[in-house]
Amino acid sequence: MAKDFARSDRVAEQMRRELADLLQFEVKDPRVGMVTVTEVEVTGDMAHAKIYYSTAEQDAKSAAELQKGLEKTAGFLRSQLSKRMLLRTVPQLHFVYDASIDNGMKLTRLINQALADSPKE
């Protein structure tokens, strides 16, 4: 009987919840504002984790500052994860901006514009 979820999937889900809590309440870096952790991918050997995030910030300068702030707090987040999770080794954290929400909003605007421009019956 095969397992429904791999261990890396379960660890990734718990990391997503813990990181969301840590980013909201524990991180004091002013560059890290409102961040939403959308997904976490953990490698099979538990050595690396990609954290996909999104934010309400739209301009490139603030997004770059946010990325720098997240990379700077990665060590703190990793140490806090080691206290909260029962893992022998905590994966190295790699932050990746998730543009899927922005792309979805662009598509919605285009669809709404196309529907507004089409002739009414």
Rank of each mutant, 00 (worst) to 15 (best):
A2I: 07
K3T: 15
K3C: 07
D4V: 10
A6L: 15
A6E: 13
D9S: 15
Q14S: 10
M15H: 01
E18Y: 07
L19T: 04
A20L: 10
A20H: 12
D21V: 12
V27M: 05
P30D: 00
P30C: 06
R31T: 08
V32G: 00
G33D: 03
V35F: 00
T38L: 02
V40W: 08
V40R: 10
H48L: 15
H48Q: 09
S54H: 12
A60G: 02
K61D: 12
E65V: 04
E65P: 08
E65A: 13
L66N: 04
L66F: 02
K68Y: 11
K68D: 10
L70K: 03
E71Q: 11
T73H: 03
T73P: 00
G75N: 02
F76M: 12
F76I: 05
L77H: 06
S79D: 03
S79A: 13
L81H: 02
K83Q: 13
K83G: 07
L86K: 12
L87R: 02
L93P: 01
H94C: 08
H94E: 14
F95Y: 04
F95V: 01
D98C: 09
S100C: 07
D102W: 10
G104L: 13
G104W: 12
T108L: 15
T108C: 07
R109H: 10
I111A: 11
N112A: 12
P119H: 12
K120R: 12
